[in-house]
């Protein structure tokens, strides 16, 4: 019995460790994205080219945060995911409206 828990515990730790490795890779990617974003702005490229890429990079970074750092990819996160997406939808409508419908 005690041995059994031990094996289980070891397996769990190994699994956690592997996941942690993934987290570090995610972190490295996020750093790279940030560097690209700052670099592109410093490089003085065309506005129309840079802004969409900046927004995509930000969205991907946020996805990494949510799915890896905050474990939304794990089981039991269906409801949190639903509510975050619902919130993101309302957020999108709000930002869109306030940025295009205010001045005319």
């Amino acid at each position: 019995m005690a041995e059994n828990t031990n094996i289980h515990e070891n397996y769990k730790r190994k699994k956690n460790k592997e996941e942690m490795k993934q987290q570090v890779i995610t972190f490295a990617l996020m750093i790279v994205f940030t560097l690209i974003a700052f670099g592109m702005v410093k490089a003085d490229l065309s506005k129309l080219f840079v802004i969409p890429i900046l927004l995509v990079l930000a969205a991907v970074q946020v996805g990494f945060q949510l799915y890896y750092f905050m474990h939304m990819s794990h089981k039991g996160h269906e409801m949190p995911a639903l509510m975050i997406y619902a919130g993101a939808f309302v957020a999108f409508m709000t930002v869109l409206t306030l940025s295009v419908l205010i001045w005319w």
Binding site: V90, M93, T94, T97, L98, L101, I102, W103
Partner: peptide, 12 residues
């Protein structure tokens, strides 16, 4: 400033 911001936020 722009007072329409209030209208939007209030009705959202």
């Amino acid at each position: 400033g722009n007072s329409v911001i209030w209208e939007h936020l209030f009705w959202i």
